[in-house]
Nucleic acid binder design. Sequence first.
DNA 1: CGCGCTCTTGACTAGGGTCAAGTGCAGTGG
DNA 2: CCACTGCACTTGACCCTAGTCAAGAGCGCG
Lengths: 247, 247
Amino acid sequence: MSSHKPAAPDALTQKLGTFLALGREELAMLDELQGPRTYIPAGKEVVYQGQHGHAAYVLREGWACSYKRLIDGSRQIIDIGVPGDFLGLRSLLLRTSDQSFVTLTDVEVRRVVTSKLWDAFRKTPRLAGALLWAVSRDEAMVVEHLVSIGRRDALARTAHFLLELGARMRLVGRGSHDSYECPLSQSMLADALGMTAIHLNRVLRQLRESNLLVFREGVVRFIDREKLADMIGFDLSYLDQGGPVLD
Amino acid sequence: MSSHKPAAPDALTQKLGTFLALGREELAMLDELQGPRTYIPAGKEVVYQGQHGHAAYVLREGWACSYKRLIDGSRQIIDIGVPGDFLGLRSLLLRTSDQSFVTLTDVEVRRVVTSKLWDAFRKTPRLAGALLWAVSRDEAMVVEHLVSIGRRDALARTAHFLLELGARMRLVGRGSHDSYECPLSQSMLADALGMTAIHLNRVLRQLRESNLLVFREGVVRFIDREKLADMIGFDLSYLDQGGPVLD
DNA sequence: CGCGCTCTTGACTAGGGTCAAGTGCAGTGG
DNA sequence: CCACTGCACTTGACCCTAGTCAAGAGCGCG
Protein backbone atom coordinates (compact mmCIF):
# COMPACT_ATOMS: atom_id res chain seq x y z
CA MET A 1 0.00 0.00 0.00
CA SER A 2 2.75 2.47 -0.84
CA SER A 3 0.29 5.02 -2.19
CA HIS A 4 2.20 8.02 -1.05
CA LYS A 5 1.81 9.84 -4.30
CA PRO A 6 2.63 8.34 -7.65
CA ALA A 7 5.73 10.20 -8.79
CA ALA A 8 7.13 9.83 -12.30
CA PRO A 9 5.88 6.45 -13.49
CA ASP A 10 8.36 3.63 -13.32
CA ALA A 11 9.41 1.85 -16.48
CA LEU A 12 6.89 -0.97 -16.22
CA THR A 13 3.96 1.34 -15.65
CA GLN A 14 5.11 3.42 -18.55
CA LYS A 15 5.35 0.38 -20.80
CA LEU A 16 1.96 -0.97 -19.82
CA GLY A 17 0.57 2.49 -20.47
CA THR A 18 1.53 1.93 -24.08
CA PHE A 19 -1.05 -0.82 -24.18
CA LEU A 20 -3.82 0.71 -22.19
CA ALA A 21 -4.42 3.52 -19.76
CA LEU A 22 -4.42 2.13 -16.23
CA GLY A 23 -6.86 3.39 -13.64
CA ARG A 24 -6.23 4.17 -10.00
CA GLU A 25 -7.28 0.76 -8.76
CA GLU A 26 -5.28 -1.03 -11.39
CA LEU A 27 -2.17 0.90 -10.51
CA ALA A 28 -2.66 -0.04 -6.88
CA MET A 29 -2.98 -3.70 -7.79
CA LEU A 30 0.10 -3.48 -9.97
CA ASP A 31 1.95 -2.18 -6.95
CA GLU A 32 0.58 -4.92 -4.73
CA LEU A 33 1.75 -7.53 -7.17
CA GLN A 34 5.31 -6.55 -6.49
CA GLY A 35 7.32 -7.19 -3.36
CA PRO A 36 9.74 -4.71 -1.81
CA ARG A 37 12.52 -3.12 -3.82
CA THR A 38 15.64 -5.17 -3.83
CA TYR A 39 19.10 -4.31 -5.08
CA ILE A 40 21.33 -6.89 -6.69
CA PRO A 41 24.89 -6.31 -7.86
CA ALA A 42 26.07 -6.87 -11.41
CA GLY A 43 26.97 -10.38 -12.48
CA LYS A 44 24.73 -12.19 -10.03
CA GLU A 45 22.86 -15.24 -11.16
CA VAL A 46 19.28 -14.67 -10.07
CA VAL A 47 17.75 -17.89 -11.39
CA TYR A 48 19.68 -20.82 -12.79
CA GLN A 49 18.81 -23.33 -15.47
CA GLY A 50 17.21 -26.33 -13.81
CA GLN A 51 16.26 -24.47 -10.67
CA HIS A 52 13.13 -25.58 -8.94
CA GLY A 53 10.55 -23.23 -7.52
CA HIS A 54 12.14 -20.18 -9.06
CA ALA A 55 10.69 -16.71 -8.74
CA ALA A 56 9.89 -13.98 -11.23
CA TYR A 57 10.90 -10.35 -10.96
CA VAL A 58 10.17 -6.95 -12.33
CA LEU A 59 13.37 -5.27 -13.41
CA ARG A 60 13.09 -1.64 -12.39
CA GLU A 61 16.57 -0.35 -13.02
CA GLY A 62 19.56 -1.84 -14.74
CA TRP A 63 20.04 -4.62 -17.26
CA ALA A 64 19.82 -8.38 -17.05
CA CYS A 65 19.70 -11.26 -19.49
CA SER A 66 18.45 -14.78 -19.78
CA TYR A 67 20.47 -17.52 -21.42
CA LYS A 68 20.87 -21.22 -21.85
CA ARG A 69 24.13 -23.05 -21.64
CA LEU A 70 24.94 -26.05 -23.82
CA ILE A 71 26.92 -29.15 -22.91
CA ASP A 72 29.95 -27.89 -24.83
CA GLY A 73 30.05 -24.83 -22.59
CA SER A 74 28.89 -22.32 -25.16
CA ARG A 75 25.89 -20.24 -24.32
CA GLN A 76 23.07 -18.56 -26.13
CA ILE A 77 21.53 -15.43 -24.73
CA ILE A 78 17.79 -15.53 -25.24
CA ASP A 79 16.75 -12.15 -24.20
CA ILE A 80 18.04 -8.93 -22.74
CA GLY A 81 16.06 -7.35 -19.94
CA VAL A 82 15.94 -3.58 -19.68
CA PRO A 83 14.07 -1.48 -17.13
CA GLY A 84 10.38 -2.32 -17.09
CA ASP A 85 10.85 -5.91 -18.21
CA PHE A 86 9.82 -9.06 -16.44
CA LEU A 87 12.41 -11.66 -15.57
CA GLY A 88 11.26 -15.25 -15.66
CA LEU A 89 7.55 -14.60 -15.74
CA ARG A 90 6.97 -16.87 -18.68
CA SER A 91 8.67 -19.84 -17.09
CA LEU A 92 6.96 -19.41 -13.76
CA LEU A 93 4.64 -22.34 -14.33
CA LEU A 94 7.38 -24.72 -15.43
CA ARG A 95 8.49 -27.09 -12.72
CA THR A 96 12.09 -26.23 -13.36
CA SER A 97 13.39 -23.11 -14.99
CA ASP A 98 14.52 -23.80 -18.52
CA GLN A 99 16.94 -20.89 -18.54
CA SER A 100 19.26 -18.85 -16.35
CA PHE A 101 19.08 -15.18 -15.51
CA VAL A 102 22.02 -12.94 -14.70
CA THR A 103 22.25 -9.30 -13.88
CA LEU A 104 24.47 -7.35 -16.25
CA THR A 105 24.63 -4.20 -14.16
CA ASP A 106 23.65 -3.40 -10.62
CA VAL A 107 19.90 -3.66 -10.68
CA GLU A 108 16.82 -2.78 -8.74
CA VAL A 109 14.10 -5.42 -8.85
CA ARG A 110 10.84 -6.26 -7.18
CA ARG A 111 9.79 -9.84 -6.82
CA VAL A 112 6.48 -10.81 -8.39
CA VAL A 113 4.08 -11.87 -5.65
CA THR A 114 2.68 -14.87 -7.44
CA SER A 115 0.02 -15.57 -4.86
CA LYS A 116 -1.66 -12.32 -5.85
CA LEU A 117 -1.64 -12.98 -9.55
CA TRP A 118 -4.93 -14.81 -9.40
CA ASP A 119 -6.42 -11.93 -7.45
CA ALA A 120 -5.35 -9.66 -10.24
CA PHE A 121 -7.13 -11.78 -12.78
CA ARG A 122 -10.30 -11.67 -10.76
CA LYS A 123 -10.32 -8.09 -9.55
CA THR A 124 -8.52 -6.19 -12.27
CA PRO A 125 -8.89 -8.09 -15.52
CA ARG A 126 -7.79 -5.09 -17.55
CA LEU A 127 -4.51 -5.05 -15.68
CA ALA A 128 -4.18 -8.79 -16.11
CA GLY A 129 -4.73 -8.29 -19.82
CA ALA A 130 -2.01 -5.68 -19.89
CA LEU A 131 0.37 -8.03 -18.12
CA LEU A 132 -0.39 -10.83 -20.54
CA TRP A 133 0.11 -8.36 -23.36
CA ALA A 134 3.56 -7.53 -22.01
CA VAL A 135 4.43 -11.20 -21.84
CA SER A 136 3.15 -11.73 -25.39
CA ARG A 137 5.25 -8.85 -26.58
CA ASP A 138 8.33 -10.31 -24.93
CA GLU A 139 7.59 -13.53 -26.67
CA ALA A 140 7.25 -11.72 -29.99
CA MET A 141 10.74 -10.37 -29.41
CA VAL A 142 12.12 -13.83 -28.81
CA VAL A 143 10.46 -14.94 -32.02
CA GLU A 144 11.95 -12.06 -33.95
CA HIS A 145 15.29 -12.92 -32.42
CA LEU A 146 14.94 -16.47 -33.67
CA VAL A 147 14.14 -15.21 -37.15
CA SER A 148 17.19 -12.98 -37.03
CA ILE A 149 19.52 -15.77 -36.11
CA GLY A 150 17.95 -18.16 -38.56
CA ARG A 151 17.73 -15.97 -41.60
CA ARG A 152 19.76 -12.79 -41.36
CA ASP A 153 23.49 -12.51 -41.91
CA ALA A 154 25.79 -11.24 -39.21
CA LEU A 155 25.59 -7.60 -40.22
CA ALA A 156 21.82 -7.41 -40.50
CA ARG A 157 21.43 -9.39 -37.32
CA THR A 158 23.66 -7.06 -35.35
CA ALA A 159 22.04 -3.93 -36.73
CA HIS A 160 18.57 -5.28 -36.12
CA PHE A 161 19.37 -6.17 -32.56
CA LEU A 162 20.82 -2.78 -31.74
CA LEU A 163 17.93 -0.98 -33.41
CA GLU A 164 15.47 -3.04 -31.42
CA LEU A 165 17.23 -2.35 -28.16
CA GLY A 166 17.16 1.35 -28.99
CA ALA A 167 13.42 1.23 -29.57
CA ARG A 168 12.88 -0.61 -26.32
CA MET A 169 14.95 1.88 -24.39
CA ARG A 170 13.05 4.80 -25.80
CA LEU A 171 9.77 3.14 -24.93
CA VAL A 172 10.67 3.28 -21.27
CA GLY A 173 12.11 6.74 -21.45
CA ARG A 174 15.82 5.88 -21.65
CA GLY A 175 18.05 7.08 -24.41
CA SER A 176 17.35 9.46 -27.25
CA HIS A 177 16.45 9.05 -30.88
CA ASP A 178 19.98 8.41 -31.99
CA SER A 179 21.82 6.98 -29.01
CA TYR A 180 21.47 4.99 -25.83
CA GLU A 181 23.58 3.45 -23.14
CA CYS A 182 24.25 -0.22 -23.61
CA PRO A 183 26.31 -2.00 -20.96
CA LEU A 184 26.76 -5.18 -22.99
CA SER A 185 30.26 -6.39 -23.70
CA GLN A 186 31.06 -7.55 -27.19
CA SER A 187 31.23 -11.14 -26.11
CA MET A 188 27.75 -10.91 -24.63
CA LEU A 189 26.38 -9.31 -27.73
CA ALA A 190 27.99 -12.12 -29.68
CA ASP A 191 26.39 -14.71 -27.42
CA ALA A 192 23.06 -13.07 -28.00
CA LEU A 193 23.51 -12.96 -31.76
CA GLY A 194 24.71 -16.50 -32.16
CA MET A 195 28.17 -15.65 -33.39
CA THR A 196 31.70 -15.36 -32.08
CA ALA A 197 32.95 -12.27 -30.33
CA ILE A 198 35.71 -12.00 -32.90
CA HIS A 199 33.35 -11.88 -35.80
CA LEU A 200 31.07 -9.47 -34.00
CA ASN A 201 34.02 -7.18 -33.57
CA ARG A 202 34.59 -7.22 -37.33
CA VAL A 203 30.92 -6.50 -37.95
CA LEU A 204 30.97 -3.57 -35.55
CA ARG A 205 33.97 -2.18 -37.33
CA GLN A 206 32.18 -2.51 -40.63
CA LEU A 207 29.12 -0.69 -39.26
CA ARG A 208 31.37 2.05 -37.93
CA GLU A 209 33.34 2.43 -41.14
CA SER A 210 30.13 2.56 -43.19
CA ASN A 211 28.99 5.47 -41.03
CA LEU A 212 25.94 3.63 -39.84
CA LEU A 213 26.45 3.23 -36.13
CA VAL A 214 29.13 3.35 -33.47
CA PHE A 215 29.13 1.16 -30.39
CA ARG A 216 31.90 2.28 -28.10
CA GLU A 217 32.39 2.74 -24.40
CA GLY A 218 28.98 1.43 -23.54
CA VAL A 219 27.07 3.72 -25.85
CA VAL A 220 25.30 2.88 -29.08
CA ARG A 221 25.13 5.89 -31.37
CA PHE A 222 23.32 5.80 -34.68
CA ILE A 223 25.01 7.86 -37.35
CA ASP A 224 22.45 7.17 -40.02
CA ARG A 225 19.50 5.49 -38.44
CA GLU A 226 17.26 5.79 -41.48
CA LYS A 227 19.70 4.20 -43.85
CA LEU A 228 20.52 1.44 -41.43
CA ALA A 229 16.87 0.67 -40.79
CA ASP A 230 15.83 0.27 -44.36
CA MET A 231 19.06 -1.39 -45.37
CA ILE A 232 18.06 -4.34 -43.23
CA GLY A 233 14.31 -3.92 -43.51
CA PHE A 234 13.79 -3.06 -39.87
CA ASP A 235 10.12 -3.09 -39.02
CA LEU A 236 9.24 -2.88 -35.36
CA SER A 237 5.57 -3.58 -35.75
CA TYR A 238 6.12 -6.74 -33.72
CA LEU A 239 6.84 -4.50 -30.74
CA ASP A 240 3.22 -3.43 -30.96
CA GLN A 241 3.75 0.12 -29.81
CA GLY A 242 0.46 1.46 -30.98
CA GLY A 243 -0.42 3.86 -28.23
CA PRO A 244 -3.05 3.13 -25.59
CA VAL A 245 -6.01 1.03 -26.57
CA LEU A 246 -8.67 2.67 -24.45
CA ASP A 247 -10.94 -0.38 -24.55
CA MET B 1 -22.24 -28.96 -23.03
CA SER B 2 -21.34 -31.92 -25.21
CA SER B 3 -21.09 -34.18 -22.17
CA HIS B 4 -22.29 -37.29 -23.87
CA LYS B 5 -19.56 -39.39 -22.48
CA PRO B 6 -15.90 -38.49 -22.62
CA ALA B 7 -14.43 -40.99 -25.08
CA ALA B 8 -10.69 -41.37 -25.60
CA PRO B 9 -9.21 -38.04 -24.56
CA ASP B 10 -8.23 -35.74 -27.38
CA ALA B 11 -4.62 -34.67 -27.76
CA LEU B 12 -4.97 -31.40 -25.85
CA THR B 13 -6.67 -33.02 -22.88
CA GLN B 14 -4.01 -35.68 -22.88
CA LYS B 15 -1.27 -33.08 -22.91
CA LEU B 16 -2.80 -30.99 -20.15
CA GLY B 17 -3.17 -34.19 -18.15
CA THR B 18 0.60 -34.33 -18.13
CA PHE B 19 0.56 -31.20 -16.06
CA LEU B 20 -2.31 -31.87 -13.76
CA ALA B 21 -5.29 -34.16 -13.46
CA LEU B 22 -8.38 -32.30 -14.63
CA GLY B 23 -11.70 -32.72 -12.86
CA ARG B 24 -15.13 -33.06 -14.36
CA GLU B 25 -15.93 -29.38 -14.20
CA GLU B 26 -12.61 -28.37 -15.62
CA LEU B 27 -13.02 -30.72 -18.55
CA ALA B 28 -16.41 -29.19 -19.21
CA MET B 29 -14.95 -25.71 -19.19
CA LEU B 30 -12.15 -26.81 -21.48
CA ASP B 31 -14.78 -27.99 -23.90
CA GLU B 32 -16.72 -24.76 -23.62
CA LEU B 33 -13.63 -22.79 -24.41
CA GLN B 34 -13.56 -24.32 -27.85
CA GLY B 35 -15.92 -23.62 -30.72
CA PRO B 36 -17.24 -26.27 -33.10
CA ARG B 37 -14.94 -28.61 -34.95
CA THR B 38 -13.76 -27.22 -38.23
CA TYR B 39 -11.88 -28.88 -41.03
CA ILE B 40 -9.30 -27.03 -43.06
CA PRO B 41 -7.41 -28.41 -46.04
CA ALA B 42 -3.62 -28.58 -46.25
CA GLY B 43 -1.72 -25.51 -47.32
CA LYS B 44 -4.27 -22.99 -46.13
CA GLU B 45 -3.09 -19.82 -44.45
CA VAL B 46 -5.12 -19.55 -41.26
CA VAL B 47 -3.67 -16.32 -39.92
CA TYR B 48 -1.30 -14.04 -41.79
CA GLN B 49 1.50 -11.82 -40.57
CA GLY B 50 0.09 -8.36 -39.93
CA GLN B 51 -3.48 -9.56 -39.64
CA HIS B 52 -5.70 -7.63 -37.31
CA GLY B 53 -8.16 -9.24 -34.94
CA HIS B 54 -6.84 -12.72 -35.57
CA ALA B 55 -8.17 -15.77 -33.78
CA ALA B 56 -6.52 -18.63 -31.92
CA TYR B 57 -7.21 -22.30 -32.46
CA VAL B 58 -6.72 -25.67 -30.88
CA LEU B 59 -5.21 -28.05 -33.39
CA ARG B 60 -6.92 -31.38 -32.89
CA GLU B 61 -5.70 -33.38 -35.84
CA GLY B 62 -3.03 -32.73 -38.42
CA TRP B 63 -0.01 -30.49 -38.57
CA ALA B 64 0.44 -26.76 -38.96
CA CYS B 65 3.27 -24.30 -38.56
CA SER B 66 3.90 -20.67 -37.81
CA TYR B 67 6.47 -18.62 -39.66
CA LYS B 68 7.67 -15.16 -40.45
CA ARG B 69 8.64 -13.99 -43.88
CA LEU B 70 11.46 -11.52 -44.46
CA ILE B 71 11.67 -8.76 -47.03
CA ASP B 72 14.00 -10.82 -49.21
CA GLY B 73 11.34 -13.51 -49.48
CA SER B 74 13.02 -16.09 -47.30
CA ARG B 75 11.09 -17.42 -44.40
CA GLN B 76 11.78 -18.76 -40.95
CA ILE B 77 9.49 -21.33 -39.44
CA ILE B 78 9.05 -20.60 -35.77
CA ASP B 79 7.16 -23.53 -34.58
CA ILE B 80 5.51 -26.71 -35.75
CA GLY B 81 2.05 -27.46 -34.43
CA VAL B 82 1.08 -31.08 -33.85
CA PRO B 83 -2.21 -32.40 -32.48
CA GLY B 84 -3.00 -30.89 -29.10
CA ASP B 85 -1.17 -27.64 -29.75
CA PHE B 86 -2.51 -24.13 -29.72
CA LEU B 87 -2.20 -21.97 -32.77
CA GLY B 88 -1.75 -18.29 -32.18
CA LEU B 89 -2.72 -18.21 -28.54
CA ARG B 90 0.35 -16.31 -27.48
CA SER B 91 -0.18 -13.51 -29.98
CA LEU B 92 -3.85 -13.14 -29.22
CA LEU B 93 -3.33 -9.94 -27.28
CA LEU B 94 -1.18 -8.30 -29.89
CA ARG B 95 -3.01 -5.82 -32.06
CA THR B 96 -1.63 -7.43 -35.18
CA SER B 97 -0.36 -10.94 -35.51
CA ASP B 98 3.41 -10.99 -35.70
CA GLN B 99 3.49 -14.26 -37.59
CA SER B 100 1.60 -16.37 -40.10
CA PHE B 101 0.06 -19.80 -39.64
CA VAL B 102 -0.37 -22.40 -42.36
CA THR B 103 -1.79 -25.88 -42.28
CA LEU B 104 0.67 -28.51 -43.44
CA THR B 105 -1.86 -31.31 -43.74
CA ASP B 106 -5.62 -31.42 -43.68
CA VAL B 107 -6.46 -30.46 -40.13
CA GLU B 108 -9.25 -30.46 -37.62
CA VAL B 109 -9.32 -27.41 -35.38
CA ARG B 110 -11.57 -25.73 -32.87
CA ARG B 111 -11.52 -22.01 -32.48
CA VAL B 112 -10.67 -20.66 -29.02
CA VAL B 113 -13.67 -18.79 -27.67
CA THR B 114 -11.78 -15.87 -26.27
CA SER B 115 -14.76 -14.33 -24.56
CA LYS B 116 -14.84 -17.31 -22.22
CA LEU B 117 -11.18 -17.18 -21.31
CA TRP B 118 -11.82 -14.76 -18.48
CA ASP B 119 -14.58 -17.00 -17.20
CA ALA B 120 -12.09 -19.81 -17.12
CA PHE B 121 -9.72 -17.76 -15.02
CA ARG B 122 -12.46 -17.01 -12.55
CA LYS B 123 -14.29 -20.29 -12.35
CA THR B 124 -11.61 -22.87 -13.03
CA PRO B 125 -8.27 -21.40 -12.04
CA ARG B 126 -6.62 -24.81 -12.09
CA LEU B 127 -7.58 -25.23 -15.72
CA ALA B 128 -6.40 -21.70 -16.45
CA GLY B 129 -3.10 -22.61 -14.84
CA ALA B 130 -2.84 -25.68 -17.02
CA LEU B 131 -3.48 -23.59 -20.12
CA LEU B 132 -0.85 -21.07 -19.12
CA TRP B 133 1.48 -23.98 -18.46
CA ALA B 134 0.90 -25.24 -22.00
CA VAL B 135 1.66 -21.80 -23.39
CA SER B 136 4.81 -21.56 -21.26
CA ARG B 137 5.91 -24.91 -22.51
CA ASP B 138 5.41 -23.85 -26.11
CA GLU B 139 7.54 -20.84 -25.40
CA ALA B 140 10.21 -23.00 -23.87
CA MET B 141 10.28 -24.88 -27.14
CA VAL B 142 10.70 -21.69 -29.11
CA VAL B 143 13.54 -20.75 -26.81
CA GLU B 144 15.21 -24.11 -27.27
CA HIS B 145 14.75 -23.68 -31.01
CA LEU B 146 16.51 -20.34 -30.82
CA VAL B 147 19.37 -21.92 -28.92
CA SER B 148 19.61 -24.65 -31.52
CA ILE B 149 19.85 -22.25 -34.41
CA GLY B 150 22.23 -19.97 -32.56
CA ARG B 151 24.65 -22.50 -31.19
CA ARG B 152 24.35 -25.94 -32.72
CA ASP B 153 25.76 -26.97 -36.07
CA ALA B 154 23.53 -28.26 -38.83
CA LEU B 155 23.76 -31.90 -37.85
CA ALA B 156 23.03 -31.43 -34.16
CA ARG B 157 20.27 -28.97 -34.96
CA THR B 158 18.54 -31.36 -37.29
CA ALA B 159 18.86 -34.30 -34.94
CA HIS B 160 17.65 -32.24 -32.01
CA PHE B 161 14.63 -31.03 -33.89
CA LEU B 162 13.60 -34.48 -35.01
CA LEU B 163 14.11 -35.93 -31.54
CA GLU B 164 11.99 -33.18 -30.05
CA LEU B 165 9.21 -33.72 -32.55
CA GLY B 166 9.28 -37.40 -31.72
CA ALA B 167 8.92 -36.68 -28.01
CA ARG B 168 6.03 -34.32 -28.68
CA MET B 169 4.27 -36.85 -30.84
CA ARG B 170 4.58 -39.53 -28.21
CA LEU B 171 3.24 -37.19 -25.56
CA VAL B 172 -0.04 -36.97 -27.44
CA GLY B 173 -0.17 -40.63 -28.28
CA ARG B 174 1.13 -40.46 -31.84
CA GLY B 175 4.08 -42.47 -33.05
CA SER B 176 6.15 -45.08 -31.25
CA HIS B 177 9.46 -45.03 -29.44
CA ASP B 178 11.53 -45.23 -32.59
CA SER B 179 9.43 -43.77 -35.35
CA TYR B 180 6.69 -41.32 -36.19
CA GLU B 181 4.96 -39.83 -39.17
CA CYS B 182 6.26 -36.47 -40.20
CA PRO B 183 4.59 -34.75 -43.12
CA LEU B 184 7.22 -32.03 -43.43
CA SER B 185 9.01 -31.60 -46.73
CA GLN B 186 12.74 -31.12 -46.68
CA SER B 187 12.43 -27.50 -47.67
CA MET B 188 10.12 -26.87 -44.74
CA LEU B 189 12.41 -28.61 -42.35
CA ALA B 190 15.18 -26.46 -43.72
CA ASP B 191 13.12 -23.31 -43.20
CA ALA B 192 12.55 -24.38 -39.65
CA LEU B 193 16.19 -25.09 -39.01
CA GLY B 194 17.55 -21.93 -40.53
CA MET B 195 19.44 -23.58 -43.35
CA THR B 196 19.02 -24.32 -47.03
CA ALA B 197 17.10 -27.34 -48.29
CA ILE B 198 20.20 -28.48 -50.13
CA HIS B 199 22.31 -28.56 -47.05
CA LEU B 200 19.58 -30.22 -45.05
CA ASN B 201 19.50 -32.94 -47.65
CA ARG B 202 23.21 -33.52 -47.15
CA VAL B 203 22.74 -33.64 -43.40
CA LEU B 204 19.93 -36.15 -43.68
CA ARG B 205 22.13 -38.33 -45.85
CA GLN B 206 24.85 -38.12 -43.25
CA LEU B 207 22.44 -39.14 -40.49
CA ARG B 208 21.23 -42.02 -42.61
CA GLU B 209 24.72 -43.21 -43.53
CA SER B 210 25.81 -43.04 -39.89
CA ASN B 211 22.94 -45.35 -39.00
CA LEU B 212 21.37 -42.83 -36.70
CA LEU B 213 18.05 -42.00 -38.27
CA VAL B 214 16.20 -42.24 -41.54
CA PHE B 215 13.67 -39.68 -42.72
CA ARG B 216 12.01 -40.97 -45.82
CA GLU B 217 8.53 -41.00 -47.29
CA GLY B 218 7.08 -38.96 -44.47
CA VAL B 219 8.36 -41.14 -41.67
CA VAL B 220 11.15 -40.43 -39.21
CA ARG B 221 12.71 -43.66 -37.99
CA PHE B 222 15.40 -43.70 -35.37
CA ILE B 223 17.99 -46.41 -35.93
CA ASP B 224 20.01 -45.62 -32.84
CA ARG B 225 18.05 -43.22 -30.70
CA GLU B 226 20.35 -43.52 -27.69
CA LYS B 227 23.53 -42.78 -29.57
CA LEU B 228 21.92 -39.91 -31.42
CA ALA B 229 20.54 -38.38 -28.25
CA ASP B 230 23.74 -38.30 -26.30
CA MET B 231 25.83 -37.44 -29.33
CA ILE B 232 24.10 -34.07 -29.39
CA GLY B 233 23.34 -33.82 -25.69
CA PHE B 234 19.59 -34.05 -26.10
CA ASP B 235 17.87 -33.22 -22.85
CA LEU B 236 14.14 -32.74 -23.00
CA SER B 237 13.71 -31.41 -19.50
CA TYR B 238 12.50 -28.16 -21.04
CA LEU B 239 9.45 -30.06 -22.24
CA ASP B 240 8.53 -30.44 -18.60
CA GLN B 241 6.95 -33.85 -18.92
CA GLY B 242 6.95 -34.68 -15.28
CA GLY B 243 3.66 -36.44 -14.85
CA PRO B 244 0.66 -34.82 -13.16
CA VAL B 245 1.27 -32.37 -10.38
CA LEU B 246 -1.70 -33.08 -8.22
CA ASP B 247 -1.61 -29.71 -6.47
C1' DC C 1 53.67 -5.41 -10.94
C1' DG C 2 51.16 -8.88 -12.87
C1' DC C 3 46.78 -10.97 -13.75
C1' DG C 4 42.59 -11.09 -16.16
C1' DC C 5 39.29 -9.09 -19.07
C1' DT C 6 37.80 -6.61 -23.17
C1' DC C 7 38.84 -5.24 -27.49
C1' DT C 8 41.44 -5.52 -31.98
C1' DT C 9 43.54 -7.40 -36.05
C1' DG C 10 45.64 -10.81 -39.20
C1' DA C 11 46.02 -15.43 -41.37
C1' DC C 12 43.98 -19.59 -42.23
C1' DT C 13 40.11 -22.97 -42.36
C1' DA C 14 35.73 -25.07 -42.75
C1' DG C 15 30.82 -25.25 -42.57
C1' DG C 16 27.27 -24.20 -45.12
C1' DG C 17 25.41 -21.33 -49.14
C1' DT C 18 25.04 -20.91 -54.29
C1' DC C 19 24.73 -22.60 -58.82
C1' DA C 20 23.78 -26.13 -61.89
C1' DA C 21 22.17 -30.46 -63.53
C1' DG C 22 19.53 -34.44 -63.18
C1' DT C 23 16.09 -38.05 -61.27
C1' DG C 24 11.59 -39.62 -60.09
C1' DC C 25 7.25 -39.06 -59.41
C1' DA C 26 2.05 -37.25 -59.54
C1' DG C 27 -1.10 -34.61 -62.08
C1' DT C 28 -3.10 -32.77 -66.40
C1' DG C 29 -4.41 -32.39 -70.82
C1' DG C 30 -4.07 -33.82 -75.68
C1' DC D 1 -1.55 -43.75 -73.68
C1' DC D 2 1.89 -40.43 -73.71
C1' DA D 3 3.90 -35.85 -73.67
C1' DC D 4 4.43 -31.90 -70.54
C1' DT D 5 4.79 -29.53 -66.34
C1' DG D 6 5.84 -28.91 -61.66
C1' DC D 7 7.53 -30.28 -57.33
C1' DA D 8 10.46 -32.84 -54.03
C1' DC D 9 14.59 -34.79 -53.70
C1' DT D 10 19.77 -35.68 -54.93
C1' DT D 11 24.39 -34.80 -55.94
C1' DG D 12 28.58 -32.40 -57.48
C1' DA D 13 31.59 -28.25 -57.96
C1' DC D 14 32.70 -23.97 -56.29
C1' DC D 15 32.76 -19.98 -53.22
C1' DC D 16 32.09 -17.02 -49.26
C1' DT D 17 30.74 -16.06 -44.58
C1' DA D 18 31.93 -16.78 -40.26
C1' DG D 19 34.74 -19.76 -37.06
C1' DT D 20 39.50 -20.89 -35.25
C1' DC D 21 44.05 -19.85 -33.92
C1' DA D 22 47.35 -16.57 -32.56
C1' DA D 23 49.21 -12.34 -30.93
C1' DG D 24 49.10 -7.93 -29.04
C1' DA D 25 47.19 -3.47 -26.89
C1' DG D 26 44.76 -1.06 -23.25
C1' DC D 27 42.91 -0.99 -18.67
C1' DG D 28 41.17 -1.84 -13.94
C1' DC D 29 42.36 -4.21 -9.73
C1' DG D 30 44.50 -6.79 -5.90
